[in-house]
Simulated scan of single mutants.
Amino acid sequence: MIKVYGQVASRAFRVLWALEEIGLEYELVDAGPQSDTVRAVSGLGKIPALEVDGAILTDSVAIMTFLADRHGALTFEAGTVERGRQDGFTERVNDEFDALLWMAARHGRILPKAHRVPEVIPSLKWEFGRNMERLAAEFEGPYLMGETMTIADILLGHCIGWATLAEFPIESEKMQAYGKALRSRDAYKAVRAKA
């Protein structure tokens, strides 16, 4: 049985969403970052962690990539041009959206107060909005890779949800509709129901 260590309101959401989309059975071990439960399986103490075949995998994108490759779902085949494009979108979302959201969270509430620089948050929001507008200009839909949903969509869908909660700008109606369509998926709703 696959075990996911983490919490729904974290990057573990992405892994759970991918598992639901693929249709795999799993157990969610509800544990927070740096908890004894998580540190017992991963020295980093970060979530999510995935236990499979007697091994522990970490990092939400690495875990989703593993699951997609193993089960031939939510991905294009390795070595194809389509997979290269998909990987490009995945890295772009990580760099241009996830990294900005994480930096804002760290400077807004996670880092010790003496190390926070909240003045950087407006700059991060501006950059996020600019990046979203550039992506919107290229986006043809219904997914990043056209007709095929991939892990890059799960990653971006999670970032759009996070951005909404953190009051980051998503002014493009096209990208708002894309986010809404992703949130309407049964797999997404199944994970939200676990919260």
Results as ranks from 00 to 15, higher is better:
Leu100Pro: 15
Gly23Thr: 07
Ile2Thr: 04
Phe13Glu: 01
Ile22Val: 01
Gly54Pro: 08
Glu96Ala: 11
Arg85Ser: 08
Leu28Asn: 08
Pro122Gln: 07
Tyr178Phe: 06
Gly6Ala: 02
Val41Gln: 14
Glu96Asn: 11
Trp102Leu: 11
Leu16Thr: 02
Ala163His: 13
Val117Met: 12
Met103Glu: 15
Gly43Val: 13
Ala49Tyr: 05
Ala114Asp: 13
Phe128Thr: 12
Glu138His: 04
Glu133Trp: 04
Pro142Leu: 01
Ala190Trp: 05
Glu21Asn: 01
Thr150Asn: 03
Met145Tyr: 04
Val191Asn: 07
Gly72Thr: 00
Ala31Cys: 14
Ile170Asn: 13
Val93Arg: 05
Thr75Ala: 07
Leu16Gln: 01
Pro33Ile: 13
Lys174Gln: 13
Pro142Met: 09
Ala31Trp: 13
Thr164Val: 10
Glu96Asp: 14
Met175Glu: 08
Ala105Pro: 06
Gly88Met: 06
Pro169His: 11
Gln7Ala: 09
Arg134Asp: 13
Pro33Phe: 11
Asp59Pro: 05
Gly79Cys: 06
Ile56Pro: 14
Lys125Phe: 02
Val29Phe: 08
Lys125Asn: 12
Arg11Val: 02
Ile110Thr: 14
Gly45Cys: 15
Ile110Gly: 05
Ala187Glu: 07
Lys194Trp: 06
Tyr5Leu: 06
Pro118Asp: 05
Glu127Asn: 05
Gly6Met: 04
Met1Thr: 10
Ala78Lys: 03
